[in-house]
Design a protein around this nucleic acid. Sequence first.
DNA 1: CTAATAGTGTCTCTCAGACATTATGTC
DNA 2: GACATAATGTCTGAGAGACACTATTAG
Lengths: 247, 247
Amino acid sequence: MSTAPEGYDPHAFVPFAVTVDLAVFTVREGRLHVLLVERGEAPYEGHWALPGGFVLPRESAEEAARRELAEETGLTRRSSRAFHLEQLRTYSDPDRDPRMRVVSVAYAALVPDLPEPRGGGDAARARWWETGRTGPLAFDHDRILSDAHDRIGARLEYTCLATAFCPAEFTLGDLQQVYETVWGVELDRPNFRRKVLTTPGFVQAAEGPPRRTGGRGKPAALYRAGAATALHPPLLRPEGRREGRTP
Amino acid sequence: MSTAPEGYDPHAFVPFAVTVDLAVFTVREGRLHVLLVERGEAPYEGHWALPGGFVLPRESAEEAARRELAEETGLTRRSSRAFHLEQLRTYSDPDRDPRMRVVSVAYAALVPDLPEPRGGGDAARARWWETGRTGPLAFDHDRILSDAHDRIGARLEYTCLATAFCPAEFTLGDLQQVYETVWGVELDRPNFRRKVLTTPGFVQAAEGPPRRTGGRGKPAALYRAGAATALHPPLLRPEGRREGRTP
DNA sequence: CTAATAGTGTCTCTCAGACATTATGTC
DNA sequence: GACATAATGTCTGAGAGACACTATTAG
């Protein structure tokens, strides 16, 4: 039993490596995709993994995640600051990395459909993978990815976060597809529209009345993200499997 | 810019200390309390702080939090396993501890009204504080405590977690007081009752029809926690300030 | 009896699910 | 014209807020 529950006994200090891992999600063509990088060295050489890296001596985990996000998406840190990034949870199993004790703070990022990524500087290959079609990932990244998917699914219910997957101007059809893609369900269009438009601050009509075609139907009105962040009352998933099991 | 976004370059390894901090909540006499310990040494000597300690070389943060919870509540690890414990988030500001680089994984624990705690082995003083009446805490613990309070408030809306504050058998009045205490609002008793009883698996009537007095009114029926963990549809707070600000 | 707490019943308004109907574009 | 997608309107049922009322104890 530790005898220093309140102070920080210097003798109890044990060095850990601290990293961040990112689950960067986007919606492309009605399917949820996640950004993965291919590992070029052991362990798990040839496997795909979530992008990530060490937290540097003078930065917070948040800053490290922001930095990695900019590197991996190939954008400037300035433009990538607009992306939604949120801390998921921390993974600390002693054996999660076979080489040493590594504690990883996982983040989820939501980005609009971006150009195909370039690797982060060196020859590392990076690409978008459709979720559910990734092979077994390195380390405990399957678990992290699964947790991240669950989390953003739940966040869509109670927040206005779905707009983070969309470009600056989007149609209500785009927004609905985000929900349908992340949740894996189909929603009723008129009801979805009513819910979004009657929630103050969820979306706002784009100023000029421009319109855009989605193929060959009637052009849709364009909207921008509103100022609201929370969603009250929530937009609940129809039925079926939820985060918390009810055995 | 880091040039090893995918591998773990040994030269990039920087040692961190990793700790856990616990926000242990209970409801006593209609007020929310949190367990704090008094610091006996610099920095923040004499200040109160959340209980916590180092993650040991061969344990996960979850196990460390469980161990600290048992030590601080003065119970066996076995009986303290029944308490609800959930990871909150990780705090990693480089200057959060003036002595060295410490990354802390914060947990929230919900316990029923317990006997007054004894310190964790040595002479450290520990006691329950009413939330909102604590002085400035050590380190960034005010922030952690605030985040923890927000989180459990939100969890009560979507989960059956309120029973974690109650003893094995409790009345619906007890349960309602948990909600009112954590949220700081008053709820309508008939409506609360209806919501709880019509949610399958939230509570179950205690077998024998025993009853208990709460003073000098009609004795109340006793219930136990049910098997459900999620709450659908949710039990939303009346109105007012929420987690996500809507500026 | 009164005071206090537990428990029941009912009305209404909000909101979501279901789905019919109209509008406006491409081919 | 056919077809596809966007947008509007309407009916209904589940559920929450408000609140009147009854039940059972202590004093």
